[in-house]
Design a protein around this nucleic acid. Structure first.
Lengths: 74, 74
DNA sequence: AAATATTTGTACGTATGTATG
DNA sequence: GCATACATACGTACAAATATT
């Protein structure tokens, strides 16, 4: 359960925190699910997923390539 | 003319660059125009102005306070 | 004190463009 | 050419904090 609408923390921060935890724990490697799929899986808008990924990209944890996907930086 | 739709550079980056230049040159101090006003002045969507401000906030050049406004960090 | 206006923050939806395979 | 995936940009609505009347 990566996000909870009843939490006061913004959804995009919750998702970023969840992904960050999985990445730093080594549980998430290689290519992430597409933004569209993550939005569908977590029942979030694509823009909300993008905001979460923006944070992780800023932190240097991931990198995104149009047409290919989003990848954990190793 | 801070932004040009014919430029290949994204509008939010153009606006960020323009504001950054004015701030570092000391031409912009204190409180910035509200997001709504900037959007109207530059004929941009509010989200586009917000993305520009996100960059400058990340760079530590500005700070925003709900209900008050956005301010140049001095 | 209370209502109103202003301003930023979050979140949704949609459309179009660009890059890759 | 077509499908997939990220990027940009528009619009809208509501919440929260602050300031004003």
């Amino acid at each position: 359960m990566p996000v909870d609408h009843n939490e006061p923390t913004p959804l995009y921060r919750q998702l970023a925190a969840s992904l960050r935890a999985d990445i730093t724990a080594g549980k998430l490697e290689g290519r992430l699910a597409s933004i569209r799929d993550m939005a569908a899986d977590y029942e979030l808008a694509e823009v909300t997923v993008r905001k979460a990924l923006d944070i992780l990209r800023e932190e240097g944890l991931i990198t995104s390539v149009p047409g290919r996907g989003t990848f954990v930086v190793r």
